Amino acid sequence: MVRTALILAVWWAQASLVWAGAPDGWETLTTAQQQVLQPVQSEWHQFPALQRQRLIVLANKFPAMKPTEQHRIQSKLREWAKLTPEQRTLARKNYRQLHQLPSDKRRHVKQRIKQSGNRTIMPKTTTTVTPLPPQEADKPAPSSQPPQN
Rank of each mutant, 00 (worst) to 15 (best):
Q135D: 15
E27T: 08
L58G: 06
D24G: 12
Q74N: 15
K124G: 05
Q111K: 06
T84W: 07
A32E: 15
S16V: 10
L58A: 07
R92I: 09
K114Q: 15
R88M: 04
D138M: 11
A32N: 13
L101K: 11
S116L: 07
P134V: 06
M65I: 09
L37E: 07
V10F: 14
K105C: 04
T127W: 01
P131T: 02
P102Y: 00
D138Y: 13
E86N: 02
Q70L: 06
V36I: 09
L77R: 01
P140W: 04
R54N: 08
A64D: 11
T120M: 13
T125W: 04
W11L: 12
W26P: 03
T4A: 14
L83C: 04
P147G: 00
R72D: 12
A5R: 09
F47G: 03
R119M: 14
H108P: 05
R88W: 01
S116G: 03
P39A: 00
A49K: 09
R119I: 15
V109M: 02
Q87T: 03
V40H: 01
A141C: 11
L50S: 11
R72V: 12
V18C: 06
A137R: 14
Q145C: 08
Q87I: 02
M65A: 05
M65P: 08
T120Y: 12
D104R: 04
A22P: 15
Q74F: 04
K66Y: 11
Q87E: 03
V129P: 00
Q135L: 15
G117C: 02
A9P: 08
K66A: 10
L132S: 05
T127S: 07
L98M: 00
Q111S: 09
P131N: 03
Q87S: 03
L37S: 00
K93Q: 14
D24K: 14
F47P: 01
A49T: 05
H45E: 13
T30R: 08
T128A: 01
Q74D: 05
P147C: 05
P63L: 03
T4F: 13
D138I: 15
R106L: 06
S42L: 11
E86M: 06
D104V: 08
H99I: 02
K66E: 06
H99Y: 08
R3K: 14
Q14D: 13
S42D: 10
W26M: 03
Q145H: 13
W26F: 02
Q34V: 02
T89S: 08
K139H: 05
Q97T: 07
K61H: 14
K139A: 02
Q35F: 03
